[in-house]
Amino acid sequence: MSEIAIHLDNLSHRFGSQVLFQNLSLQIEANKITVILGRSGSGKSTLLQIINGLIVPDEGVVQLFGQPLDYGNIHQARLNIGYAVQQVGLFPHLRVIDNIMLPGKLAGWSSERKEKRAAELMELVSLPSSHANKFPYQLSGGEQQRVGLCRAILLNPPLMLLDEPFSSLDPDTKAEIHQEVLKLQRMEPRCIVMVTHDPEEAQKLGDVLLKFENGELTTTA
């Protein structure tokens, strides 16, 4: 087994009275796409948010690249984790280019560095450069999702979390963007953890496929 990016050790978490999982342990490899397939409401989204510290588990430890997640300095840790969600969450008051470059601002990158990297990424995911100065609402759903991806990986994080990012796209757009993701992964491999309820998508993208059911994870491929 290659390098371990994420190590979840004995996680237990409940949401109100509902037990989402009990004593869950999992290791996720670096530089691979791991897809967690599960029904909506199964808690797979919660699992992702536990990894980037948006949710603190009731019990258990999260380790990223051998280091336990430092909740006291969580902002810094998150700069190393790309995060994209289904609703994309582009900031409506910022132009496309500024949305993409925002993490660079947080990390204190120089303007040149931000601009160069943003232009590079836009090209990589086939976003025309004329979109740079548009506002998010002027873009199609697929284009917005591409912008979201660029933003998530601007800082070239070793880890990216994708929370059903493509489920609201039409099949053609979805197919296109799947190609972009695979291309990105070839160009700059990283540990991608994606949750989805779409088995076809899971098959297509996943190097490792996990099924999440009744709080249990089972390997299927």
Partner: peptide
């Protein structure tokens, strides 16, 4: 402000102050 935007801003690594400055106050 849309909770999704807040979640994304937090997930991106913004501090409370940064969230106000780049997201909350402008919106």
């Amino acid at each position: 402000v849309d909770p999704v935007l807040r979640k994304v801003a937090t997930g991106m690594g913004m501090t409370v102050f940064q969230q106000l400055r780049y997201v909350g106050i402008p919106l």
